[in-house]
Structure formats: C-alpha cells, structure tokens
Amino acid sequence: MTYKLILNGKTLKGETTTEAVDAATAEKVFKQYANDNGVDGEWTYDDATKAFTVTE
C-alpha cells in the first residue's frame, strides 16, 4: 500500500511516498526520513487518505 508524507517544516516543505505493509511501518520510515532531514514537529495521520503530516 502507498502512504504519503506531507512535510510542513520550517526549512523543508514537500511530499514523499513510500510503499509499506501497514501504517505503523510507513510511520517508522517517514519519521526516520523527517529526522534525517532535520524536521521535528507535530505528527498527524489521516487513514482515509493514507497521509501523514508533520508540521514544525
């Protein structure tokens, strides 16, 4: 299944996707991606759209 990450960081904005077996796996991938790019903020998840959002 495809999951999307929407980044609303102070220095990094954009979107990326990942293929994962479930939302928990996608969340781990996205949190590592955000951490690697220096984005740390409030996380939300919308199951209807399979989209995670992180806002700094």
Rank of each mutant, 00 (worst) to 15 (best):
E19F: 15
Y3H: 03
E56R: 04
L12Y: 15
T49W: 05
T2A: 06
E42A: 10
T2D: 05
K10Q: 12
K28Y: 08
D22C: 05
A34F: 03
E27R: 07
K50Y: 09
D46W: 03
D40K: 13
Y45S: 01
K13A: 07
T44V: 10
N37E: 07
G9N: 05
A20W: 02
Y45T: 00
A34V: 09
A26K: 00
Y45V: 01
T25M: 11
V39S: 03
D47G: 08
A23N: 05
D40H: 15
T18I: 15
Y45D: 01
T16P: 03
A23M: 11
G9F: 14
K28W: 09
K28Q: 11
V54Q: 00
V29R: 08
L7I: 15
L5R: 00
T2V: 14
A23L: 11
N37R: 15
G38Q: 07
A34K: 00
D47L: 06
Y33S: 02
K28E: 09
E27G: 06
F52H: 01
A24D: 10
D47K: 08
D36R: 08
G14C: 14
Q32I: 10
T44R: 08
T18E: 04
T25N: 08
D40N: 12
I6P: 01
G38M: 07
I6G: 02
L12I: 13
V29T: 11
E42N: 09
T53C: 08
T25Y: 07
N37I: 14
T17S: 11
T16R: 13
G38R: 06
T2N: 06
D36T: 08
V39F: 13
A34S: 05
T53N: 04
E27K: 09
T49P: 03
N35R: 15
E56T: 07
A26I: 02
L5D: 03
V54F: 05
D47P: 15
Y45K: 01
L12T: 10
T2R: 09
E15W: 13
Y3N: 03
N8D: 09
T55A: 05
D40L: 12
D22G: 04
G41F: 03
T53D: 02
T55Q: 06
T25E: 14
E56K: 04
G9R: 04
V54P: 00
T11N: 13
T16S: 08
D36A: 12
F30W: 01
E42C: 11
D47M: 07
T2S: 07
Y45N: 00
A24S: 10
Y45F: 06
T53R: 05
A48Q: 11
F30S: 00
E27Y: 15
T44M: 08
T11Q: 10
A23D: 05
E42Q: 11
E15Y: 12
F30K: 01
T55D: 06
E42T: 13
A23G: 04
F30Y: 01
A34G: 03
A20K: 02
K13L: 07
D36L: 12
D36Y: 07
W43A: 00
A24M: 11
A23F: 13
T16I: 15
K28C: 09
G41R: 01
A20Y: 02
D40V: 15
E19I: 15
L7S: 03
D40P: 04
F52N: 00
T16E: 05
K10E: 09
T11W: 14
E27N: 05
A24K: 12
A23S: 09
T18C: 15
F30D: 00
T18G: 03
V54C: 10
G14H: 12
D22P: 00
K50I: 02
T44P: 00
M1R: 12
T2W: 10
A48T: 12
F52E: 00
A26L: 01
W43M: 04
A24L: 11
Y3K: 01
F30H: 00
Q32H: 06
E42D: 12
G9K: 04
E42K: 11
V29D: 04
F30Q: 00
D36V: 09
D40T: 14
D22Y: 03
L5K: 01
M1V: 14
A20L: 02
K31R: 15
D36G: 05
E15T: 13
G9C: 13
E27Q: 11
A51S: 15
Q32R: 10
K13D: 05
K28I: 12
M1D: 14
D36E: 13
T18Y: 13
T25Q: 13
L12K: 10
Y45R: 01
E27H: 11
V54H: 01
A26N: 00
K28D: 06
W43H: 00
E56V: 09
K31I: 07
T53L: 06
K50D: 02
A20Q: 07
E56F: 10
L12S: 08
N35H: 15
N35V: 14
Q32M: 09
E42P: 04
A24R: 09
D36I: 11
T49Q: 12
K28T: 09
D40F: 15
Y33K: 02
A51W: 06
D40Q: 14
G38S: 06
N35T: 14
Q32Y: 05
I6E: 04
K50M: 10
D22L: 04
K28V: 10
Q32D: 09
K50N: 08
W43E: 00
T2K: 10
T11S: 11
G38L: 06
T11K: 11
D46K: 03
A48P: 06
F30I: 01
V21M: 13
F52R: 00
T25H: 13
G41Q: 01
K31Y: 05
D22I: 03
E56D: 09
L7A: 04
D46A: 04
V39E: 02
A26H: 00
I6T: 06
A23V: 12
T44K: 08
A20N: 03
E56P: 06
D36H: 08
K10W: 13
V54E: 00
A20M: 03
V39L: 11
T17A: 07
N8M: 11
T2E: 09
T16V: 15
W43F: 04
G9S: 09
W43P: 00
Q32N: 08
T16M: 15
W43T: 01
